[in-house]
Design a protein around this nucleic acid. Structure first.
Length: 850
RNA sequence: GGAUGUUUAGCUCAGCUGGGAGAGCAUCUGUUUGACGUACAGAAGGUCACAGGUUCGAGCCCUGUAGCAUCCACCA
């Protein structure tokens, strides 16, 4: 027998290993089933999983578990990402605390340390997956640095290189001086920062005048090669061709004209620093200007900065401004707020920096992706986000000055510098391999096909690729989704997944992003500890609309837990009543009493709706239909009704009711199972006639049921509610014994009176065609009920007046609609008929009431 | 500057193809029924941001306005 209380800890214990040991997560065991495949977005091996992961993976697990019960051969492939920058940074930080740098260790030793880290954190992630109950096929687990993926990366690199889609070039890149590596454009976050706008006087050569030039980054002045003005600018037009003196180093700079300069911004005169600014770099290309780098790879000033050599960029800025001020060339300093690029990883200010890097040429790949992608985004609007980005994408900087990652398979000839790109290691001592590794996303972009064996055409690849669904948050559409799409189209000629389900981000109760600096992060394990994983899963995947963000609100997790407790207890009631040797019998729908028919019709409708939304991945909508059925139709209504029939004299019918309870309970358990697999398995195994695991069950199907008139059941429920309501508003005790007189010409179904008696606490119920009762009158379809009690006449009058007012307003509403010829002519016939029927009914009621 | 979302009960949010506004929590009454007090029975609470339009009919569709949020691009 089940415990009186639902105890998540007890319920969850041992279930995951039970499933795993029985191999229920392993795909491909029955190839007669249609395949359904997903790959997990591989989490970084850097650390713990947060609520965002919990959300994302629960969505996938719900899908996997639902599809299995629907008869699919489900593959959900797990794996992790080496996360180059993030992991290396963490390991370096750890070493720094021990007083060691990666250079002390050397490349090989350092990588050993990182692998140790990977093993440790990989174990953590496995534990968390198990806690979350994810039905992952561990026999197919992959890692972005494993042999197969490494080979795939090299094959892709070489192929793109051979096609001219990968090139090495000198460009302005975003440089992270803390992590000492280049970044791609999307790894830079722009934040509005308070800064200073320095206005300096540049003496004009051969004149006593100044040209005032403003900058936010004075330290880059050592890399200046010109000052630009707009040729249309009347103030400065005459100066083009002359020279000014750079106040930083007294070097003469030509004044040049270009329409790029915004006349209205700053002073209209702009310094040009090609090696430290992408726009200036473009100008230098146009005019063949020199590119002077004035910083080293830690953003310290180099020899170009003369006396400032060795200073940090900000130190230099301060010193230089002071010097220029002393020289009398500081015009003014303006406080401004301007966007400044920060490294997504180290959060330091990114330095635009000229250097030689590897790039993926994006336009041909983007064009192909836009033309050929068949990915169906859910919700559809995210396709626009993707298209927009894809249309404007820059070339992708893929080289990183790190050690942890896929080393670039390019080799340079010692003497000639000739580049050799090779999948196999080059043993010729004349060639030296590139020191850099590839951007992490370069390998994750291959995830859906490389994990299935590509470039080999394996059995798995044939069976499971393209994958059926990819689920992820909208924040990584650019980083990952778009790159999987263009790489997949380039290398497999197919889109990597049929559907791409995009969900929002999890936020704190105030709607803020969860972050370390705010300290508002919630550890999923803490939540699980309090409420159980099923409640967490239910909370995460319900109550929010597709693609919207979701706030973490503890009360909602508690509410989810209460709901599961409700299911638990309804199961307890049903199971207690079934008894020891219960065997479900076939249900003959036609022979059932109306109350039983009614609940089966409602169940059927619920199954239909729930499946319909499950199929669309709308787990929130699906759950709300189930919730309403469980609470209102099943627990609050039918369970209560069943108490009458189970205790009645009619033992034969009581058996039928038991079977019905059994079937409904089973369907509820199976429908809640994808959301809350632990409690579902526990309850399932407590039901009679069960299989070894709920994972072997099939999902309930909606049936075609014969049409039947259940209006008397509806009336019965309304009567009960009206009587209860009436007692409360008249301050009668809930168990106050009323006397009921029912007028009807219909024959009520046999147990009608029994049900009514039980729930109204009536001491007497009489049924007749007409009566002279003075009780309070309630009018239903074809039935009138009088409630007799000791209430004063005034109160009765008040109730009557209220009812009349309501009916009159309803009649007026209907009449307005029906008197509108347009409504009658244009609205659907059923709608008009319905309205007409309501009007007639209400008119009749009004007459009876008066 | 461009794009996307959002504005519904005190709070957090649902609301499917347009057909009498819903949930959870909070509030107020009252508890009795051999599943459940993590509960039950009830109640109260809404000009669906605003202004137009389409329609017989708009929370939902269209146009505009305002607030909030996010993303992209950016000015030295």
């Amino acid at each position: 027998m089940l415990d009186k209380r639902y105890d998540p800890k007890k319920v969850e214990e041992g279930k995951y290993s039970f499933w795993k040991e029985n191999d229920y997560f392993t795909a491909g065991k029955d190839k007669s089933k249609p395949p359904f495949s997903m790959v997990i977005p591989p989490p970084n091996v850097t650390g713990k999983l947060h609520l965002g992961h919990a959300w994302d993976t629960t969505v996938q697990d719900i899908t996997a578990r639902y599809k299995r019960l629907q008869g699919f051969d489900v593959l959900w492939l797990p794996g992790m990402d080496h996360a180059g920058i993030a992991t290396q940074a963490k390991v370096e930080e750890k070493l720094r605390k021990e007083g060691v740098s990666r250079y002390d260790l050397g490349r090989e030793k350092f990588l050993e340390k990182v692998w140790e880290w990977k093993d440790e954190y990989g174990r953590n992630i496995h534990e968390q997956w198990a806690k979350m109950g994810l039905s992952l096929d561990y026999t197919r687990e992959r890692f972005t640095l494993d042999e197969g993926l490494s080979r795939a990366v090299k094959v892709v690199f070489k192929s793109l290189y051979d096609k001219g889609l990968i090139y090495r070039g000198e460009r302005i890149i975003n440089y992270d001086p803390v992590l000492k590596t280049a970044l791609s454009n999307i790894e830079v976050e722009y934040k509005d920062i308070k800064g200073k706008f320095y206005y300096f006087r540049y003496p004009i050569v051969g004149s006593d005048e100044y040209l005032i030039v403003a900058t936010t980054r004075p330290e880059t002045m050592f890399g200046d090669v010109a000052v630009f003005v707009n040729p249309k600018d009347k103030r400065y037009k005459h100066l083009i061709g002359k020279k000014v003196i750079n106040p930083a180093n007294e070097e003469p700079l030509p004044i040049m004209g270009d329409e790029y300069v915004d006349i209205s911004f700053g002073t209209g005169a702009m310094k040009c620093t090609p090696a430290h600014d992408p726009n200036d770099f473009a100008l230098s290309n146009k005019y063949g200007l020199e590119r002077i780098i004035c910083m080293d790879n830690e953003a310290k000033m180099n020899e170009v900065a003369g006396p400032y050599k060795g200073m940090d960029r900000y130190e230099c800025r301060e010193a230089l401004v002071k010097k220029i001020e002393q020289d009398g060339r500081l015009e003014k300093i303006e406080e401004i707020v301007h966007p400044v690029g920060h490294s997504e990883r180290s959060h330091t200010v990114v330095e635009p920096y000229l250097s030689k890097q590897w790039f993926v040429k994006m336009s041909p790949l983007a064009k192909q992706a836009l033309e050929k992608s068949t990915v169906n985004f859910v919700p559809a609007r995210f396709k626009k986000t993707w298209v927009q980005w894809m249309k404007n994408v820059d070339d992708w900087c893929i080289s990183r000055q790190l050690w942890w990652g896929h080393r670039i398979p390019a080799y340079y000839h010692k003497d000639t510098g000739e580049i050799l790109v090779s999948i196999e290691p080059v043993n010729d001592p004349n060639y030296i391999q590139d020191e850099d590794v590839l951007d992490t996303w370069f390998s994750s972009a291959l995830w859906p096909f490389a994990t299935l064996g590509w470039p080999e055409v394996t059995e798995d690849y044939k069976r499971y690729f393209p994958t059926s669904l990819l689920s992820t948050g909208y924040d990584i559409i650019f980083f990952w989704v778009s790159r999987m799409i263009f790489d997949s189209l380039e290398f497999t000629k197919e889109s990597p997944f049929k559907d791409c389900l995009i969900h929002g981000l999890i936020r704190d109760a105030q709607g803020r992003k969860m972050s370390k600096s705010l300290g508002n992060g919630i550890d999923p394990l803490d939540v699980i500890d309090h409420y159980g994983v099923d409640a967490l899963r239910y909370f995460l995947t319900t109550g929010s609309a597709p693609g919207q963000d979701n706030r973490y609100i503890e009360e909602k997790v508690a509410a989810s837990s209460n709901y599961l407790n409700k299911i638990w207890n309804s199961a307890r009631y049903v199971l207690e009543n079934l008894g020891e040797d219960f065997k479900p019998s076939e249900i003959n729908f036609a022979s059932l009493e109306p109350v039983e028919k009614d609940i089966l019709v409602k169940l059927n409708k619920t199954i239909f709706k729930v499946s319909q939304y499950m199929d669309k991945y709308e787990y929130s909508m699906a759950s709300s239909y189930l919730y309403n059925f469980v609470y209102d139709d099943f627990c609050s209504t039918y369970l209560e009704m069943s108490k009458v029939s189970l205790q009645s004299e009619n033992k034969e019918y009581a058996q039928v009711v038991k079977s019905i309870l059994y079937y409904i309970l089973k369907d509820i358990i199976i429908m809640i199972y994808p959301y809350a697999p632990f409690i579902a398995e526990e309850l399932y195994q407590a039901t009679p006639n069960h299989l070894k695991s709920i994972m072997l069950e099939s999902y309930p199907k909606a049936h075609k049921l014969p049409k039947c008139d259940l209006s008397d059941v509806t009336t019965l429920y309304k009567m009960i509610q009206d009587i209860r309501n009436y007692k409360v508003t008249n301050k009668l005790a809930p168990n106050y014994k009323v006397k009921l007189v029912i007028e009807t010409k219909k024959e009520l179904f046999p147990s009608f009176k029994d049900y009514l008696a039980k729930f109204s606490f009536a001491k007497d119920i009489s049924v007749c065609e007409s009566s002279s009762s003075k009780g309070i009158k309630f009018i239903y379809q074809d039935i009138v009920m009088f409630v007799e009690d000791d209430i004063s006449d005034e109160e009765k009058e008040a109730k009557k007046a209220k009812d009349i007012a309501y009916l009159e307003s309803e009649i007026k509403r209907s009449e307005n609609m029906l008197n509108n010829p347009n409504f009658v002519a244009k609205a659907p016939k059923e709608k008009v008929e319905l309205e007409r029927a309501k009007l007639e009914e209400n008119k009749r009621r009004l007459i009876e009431l008066k």
